[in-house]
Design a protein around this nucleic acid. Structure first.
Length: 299
DNA sequence: TGCGTTGTTTCACC
DNA sequence: CGGTGAAACAACGC
């Protein structure tokens, strides 16, 4: 379930280990992960130097010498792991045996660098992809994704931007926030956390979130994503959260107690998505005074 | 063993 | 054209 914080952690790990390193060997065990690649033969990158690691939304972008770029999308269950001697740095979805040796069953691609670091890409579900492409085609590719403002950072979404995006949408606010053209980088974990923090029921029609609550919601998004980045991503295995310092507070914690009010966290479906919330902190939208109210017969 | 899983795309329809 | 809701899809673990 890599979302912005997990991808940002992956970016940071690559930046802090591989900047200036040269690729000297590759092993591809599952070529289909390169299915969208302009250069299906990964050895196009052999001998090239990694010069930059950046991120847009949930896309991880690495820039290489000789005008090449390699993009990763980790999708549901991708993971990158860097190893040298006894040291190991990992970001993304946990693999079944995190302490075991790499490569393992779901490590599909490995890169050896001249500095001794080895980059392993693992993916239990195999939905992720890697694309090697000309550097000058990256901007157009990203533009085509129609990403909205980032969730955090210098170009993080503003209250005005969010207000404009939600204004005429009747879909549940949770689904609007998962729309990458509204705000880029949020996924199912952090949207649950942000809505709980802002005390908004996920089913609330997007346009019905009161304007005075929008600054709270933007703050809650920054808090959820920011906390995720600080922690190096969230650990969710088989629908169960393994919180660090109480975070995540609700996601994948059905039946546990809400840290705010002590009520029991419940799980519902919102647009096919498993959704966790506190029924006390996040009551269903109340029909406002002045609006027409309806009563079922028999009440 | 069929269900659950998520980010993303596609489709029919209003 | 754009919003909506639902389905599809990738493949695996349990």
């Amino acid at each position: 379930m890599p979302e912005l914080p997990e991808v940002e952690t992956a970016r940071w790990i690559i930046e802090s280990t591989l900047l200036g390193a040269r690729l000297i060997a590759t092993e591809v065990r599952l070529p289909k992960l390169l299915r969208y690649s302009d250069f299906p033969d990964i050895d196009t990158l052999l001998g090239k130097e990694l010069i930059c690691a950046r991120r847009r939304a949930k896309l991880l972008i690495t820039d290489w010498s000789e005008d090449l770029a390699m993009l990763f999308h980790l999708k549901l269950s991708g993971q990158i792991s860097l190893q040298r001697d006894g040291e190991r740095l990992t970001a993304g979805h946990p693999v079944p045996d995190p302490g075991g040796p790499y490569p393992h069953k779901s490590t599909h691609i490995s890169f050896d660098f001249d500095t001794g670091w080895v980059l392993h890409l693992s993916d239990v579900r195999q939905f992720g992809w890697i694309r090697v492409m000309p550097a000058d085609a990256v901007d157009a590719f990203i533009a085509a994704q129609k990403f909205g403002p980032e969730a955090v950072g210098p170009h993080g979404i503003t209250v005005e931007q969010l207000k404009a995006s939600l204004a005429r949408r009747s879909i549940p606010v949770k689904l609007a926030l998962l729309d990458q053209s509204v705000v880029a980088g949020i996924g199912n974990i952090y949207v649950d956390e942000a809505l709980h923090r802002a005390k908004i029921h996920p089913m609330t029609p997007a346009k019905d979130v009161p304007p005075e609550v929008l600054p709270t919601l933007v703050g809650a998004i920054r808090w959820a994503i920011g906390t995720g980045i600080e922690q190096g991503g969230a650990k969710i295995i088989h629908n169960r959260a393994y919180p660090i310092d109480g975070f995540p507070e609700v996601h994948a914690r059905k039946g546990e107690t809400c840290p705010v009010c002590g009520d029991e966290i419940i799980k519902i479906k919102v647009g096919q998505r498993g959704t966790y919330l506190c029924p006390t902190c996040q009551p269903e939208a109340v029909v406002m005074a002045g609006n027409q109210t309806r009563r079922r017969s028999g009440e």
